[in-house]
């Protein structure tokens, strides 16, 4: 019996209007698994904000998701320009998004703060010139039953910070 469900989404960096595809697919999958609605909402916001950041700043990237019995783990990895000052980037209202993104309603400087607020644990690791990895954990709160069998417990996650 499988302990965790592992999913990978490729985030295209080509079109900001198309962003949200991965978070939409993940939301659907979590619904099918019977994950509580509030947990789905928090995970979806984490994923969506991450997607938007990767499209705006890094020309896309990859999202790896592990769904365990107790927690959902997300690793967002890109090979973009990196974040020179993570503390500054985490501050509400700080944004380096361009006019095109702002015209579409992005660039409020709330992306990373939203991800932190909606997750129970978040780590940002970045190297200028090489890329950024964001790790997030969202606690489910109770064990989830899935159609293919019951998820008993989550495997310990090892964040991949090798960027």
């Amino acid at each position: 019996m499988e302990d965790t469900i592992k999913l990978t989404y490729e985030i295209s960096g080509s079109d900001l209007l198309q962003a949200g595809e991965a978070s939409g697919l993940l939301k659907l999958r979590l619904k099918q698994l019977g994950i509580p609605q509030e947990v789905i909402r928090r995970v979806s916001i984490c994923m969506y904000e991450g997607e938007i950041n990767m499209v705006i700043h890094a020309n896309g990237g990859t999202a790896d998701v592990e769904i365990g019995a107790d927690d959902i783990f997300i690793w967002l990895k890109d090979t973009g320009p990196g974040i020179p000052d993570i503390v500054k980037a985490m501050a509400e209202g700080f944004s380096t998004a361009g006019k095109k993104a702002r015209d579409l309603g992005f660039g409020a400087g709330m992306g990373l703060p939203n991800m932190k607020r909606c997750s129970d644990e978040m780590t940002v690791t970045s190297t200028v010139g090489h890329g950024t990895t964001v790790f997030m954990r969202v606690h489910i709160g109770k064990s989830a039953d899935v159609a293919s069998g019951r998820l008993l417990h989550a495997s310990p996650a090892t964040p991949g910070y090798d960027i």
């Binding site: 909402r41 969506y48 904000e49 309603g105 992005f106 409020a108 709330m110 703060p113 939203n114 607020r117």
Partner: peptide, 13 residues
């Protein structure tokens, strides 16, 4: 509101 991240932060189900 029109800033999407702010909407995601404040709007409730």
């Amino acid at each position: 509101g029109d800033l999407l991240s702010r909407v995601m932060c404040r709007m409730k189900p």
